[in-house]
Structure formats: structure tokens, C-alpha cells
Simulated assay, not measured.
Amino acid sequence: MTELSVFATIRPKPEHKSDALAAIEGILSATRAEPGCHRFELNVGVEDTGALYLVEHWADDAALDAHYDMDYIKRVFAAYEDWLAEPVEIVRMRRHA
């Protein structure tokens, strides 16, 4: 299998932006230590729209599935149910050339 790239856009409600940001910051080290994680990067927009962005590179689909199955990720996703203005937008990509 080939490497999988993910671009995630997270749009928290304004009153929960700091909660969402802290939650993601809290999983950075553990996620980066996962065997299939090649890159896991948190970004904020230059124009502060309130959105958070994750740029991720995984060894393959199985590595990303294993990531989503981690208890600490499940806790963040559960919190997102209250914190987010809309569902996380996830774009899965593979390098073309």
C-alpha cells in the first residue's frame, strides 16, 4: 500500500475553540509516536476564521484506522460532538506522481 495523506478542517464553535485547540495539542506527541504516523501537524489559518487544520501523513489506511481506534482519539471525537459548529471535514489523498 502507498502512503495516505489527510487534510482535516476542524471548525469549533467560538466558545469551544480553546477547548478544541488544547485537546489537539494534547494528542500531538502520542499521535506522532504511533508506528504508522509519518507526520501530524496542527495549523491555524493566517486569517483567523476560527478553524483548525491538521496535515497528516500515514504509512497506509491501516495506520490511520489504528489511529482512529486509539482511546485518546475517541475521547477527542466524543468531545467534538459538543464543541464543533459542523462535522470535521476530512480529505484523504494519495500522491499522484
Rank of each mutant, 00 (worst) to 15 (best):
84 L>E: 02
45 G>T: 07
35 P>H: 05
92 R>N: 03
2 T>D: 14
50 G>N: 06
12 P>T: 02
66 A>S: 01
41 E>V: 07
82 D>T: 15
4 L>T: 01
36 G>L: 02
7 F>G: 10
5 S>Y: 11
50 G>W: 05
41 E>K: 09
65 D>S: 13
33 A>Y: 02
18 S>Y: 10
39 R>M: 11
24 I>D: 04
10 I>C: 08
54 L>G: 03
71 D>F: 10
54 L>I: 02
29 S>V: 14
94 R>T: 02
60 D>K: 00
29 S>G: 14
6 V>L: 14
4 L>D: 02
17 K>G: 07
11 R>N: 12
30 A>E: 15
17 K>F: 09
88 V>S: 09
6 V>K: 07
63 A>V: 00
26 G>R: 04
18 S>T: 08
82 D>K: 15
65 D>G: 11
80 Y>K: 07
71 D>R: 15
9 T>A: 07
92 R>S: 05
3 E>K: 03
40 F>E: 06
30 A>L: 15
35 P>W: 06
47 E>W: 12
73 I>R: 01
61 D>F: 09
1 M>A: 13
47 E>S: 11
68 Y>K: 14
51 A>T: 10
60 D>F: 07
64 L>P: 04
69 D>L: 06
34 E>L: 01
67 H>M: 00
87 P>V: 03
94 R>H: 09
58 W>S: 04
96 H>V: 00
17 K>L: 07
66 A>Q: 03
80 Y>S: 13
85 A>E: 08
41 E>F: 08
80 Y>G: 15
52 L>A: 02
28 L>A: 03
67 H>A: 01
21 L>I: 05
43 N>Y: 15
36 G>A: 01
27 I>G: 11
24 I>N: 04
8 A>D: 01
82 D>Q: 15
33 A>C: 04
19 D>H: 14
85 A>N: 02
39 R>V: 07
96 H>F: 03
51 A>F: 08
68 Y>C: 14
63 A>F: 02
90 I>T: 12
